[in-house]
Design a protein around this nucleic acid. Sequence first.
RNA 1: GGUCUCGUGGCCGAGUGGCUAGGCAGAGCUCUGCAAAAGCUUGUACAGCGGUUCGAAUCCGCUCGAGACCUCCA
Length: 493
Amino acid sequence: MNIKKHELKVHNSLSGKKESFQPLNQEYVGMYVCGPTVYSDVHLGNCRTFISFDMMYRYLMYLGYKVRYVRNITDAGHLENDADEGEDKIAQKARLEQLEPMEIVQKYTVGFRKIMGEFNALPPSIEPTATGHIIEQIEMIKDIISKGLAYEANGSVYFDVPKYQSQGGNYGVLSGRNTDELFHNTRELDGQSEKQSPLDFALWKKASPSHIMRWPSPWSIGFPGWHLECSVMSSKYLGEQFDIHGGGMDLKFPHHECEIAQCQAHTNHPPVKYWLHSNMLTLNGKRMSKSTGNTVLPQELFTGENDLLVKGFDPSVVRFFMMQAHYRSVLDFSNEALLASEKGFARLMDAMEKLDSLHSSSSISELDVEGWMSRSLSAMDDDFNTPILIAELFEAVRWINSISEGKLAISKEDLVQLSSFMKDMVFFVLALKSPAKSASTDKLDSAMQLIIELRRGARIEKNWALSDQIRDHLAQEGIQLKDGPDATSWFIQ
RNA sequence: GGUCUCGUGGCCGAGUGGCUAGGCAGAGCUCUGCAAAAGCUUGUACAGCGGUUCGAAUCCGCUCGAGACCUCCA
């Protein structure tokens, strides 16, 4: 195992600062990311989070770390609201679609994986499900009760936040909230009478008669509280202390705060060294919301079948677009921004294609490949700054074009370096893909070659009327001819 | 109401106490039968008002505006 020389810094939500990244176990990294709740189609915001962490996973591997990446599937269903009387979301959806709850779970799990695959996200090392870890969750609850930090009420079990605080716990470390303020700002909700304090949260809920997903426990037939699964599954697969825990900003409170409290109560030490949070995605400047219609599904984004979109966008274009913004910044989706990224992406991919046909014409380079690689890695080492990395990649695009035109000299060694580093960054770390050519494009290409050949004949005879007619007609069909110095090429607009 | 984040050129989006972000669009040039495309080059900026400083867009304060969380949410 050989970790590349680097000084990775990550923004830790616990301190609110960038910290030097030092894994607990040398070259091994444990990373846990809160996965999706599979009761409906993944929404684009989820995708951004998972794509951000996929990029980090890839970069850590690129650096030489051996990473175990765990991302859960929440399939046990959460309460519809915090009134404790809500219906299990998955059960509710099951009734709506007349399907078994696990059928719903399966359907949306498959859909989720398909979409993430299209975004070229690597599957996690382990993708555990909440329903597969009911026993472990019950065991953790038992332990927390035995430590006096949880109590049973009416078949449900709650975490005792005030007691946790009195015993030196720090509920609020992550989100920067203090419990007194929280207490005063918590709304009084019906059905909270079981709780001793409004800040307490459920570890186990007794199931109402209408609740379909249910399991036996020492306290009642019921289901686990929604914060518990992450504590249980992360500690099971990564240990009681691990390096990175990620998720969207909106999970910081209360979800991640509760996770910390549960683990602290259970093991008496903090579970996670670095908490990383990715920021939200907005659509046309506003939060995505199904109720206002301001929402786009990933699939719609690919096909363009949504009134808010002028056209569909390749998943790699979308990924590139996301990588052009830093993961901790709010990113706004709009047609204009996507269109601009699409053009930039095409230019980058064009240069990538030229890479293999480049040759060294000199023993001396007119450019500083070493310095460029080092700047690129510094950008990534600075809390995964992909926008800066991309800016550097475009510097290389200029070089590649100039070398290709014979206007810039590069040594053989530098060319090898440039080429392999570009490929590592573009295809592996950023995980962008050139739009694949299909069988039908191959056939079209052979037909186009014929047309181009015939038109070439017309041009040799200076029959401009005919050659322009061919070109204009194809242009109307959306096929653009490019007359280069040596040959004519084509592409679909 | 409470906690927090942000406000950059026509658009998107980095960064920083003094030194080019980058992409898209625009402009100029090259290539071309003419175009288109492509390539090369290139201008415009840091919400407002105060303060700290030799120097701030970058630090501090206030104002205005936007967003997140506080309730399921990546």
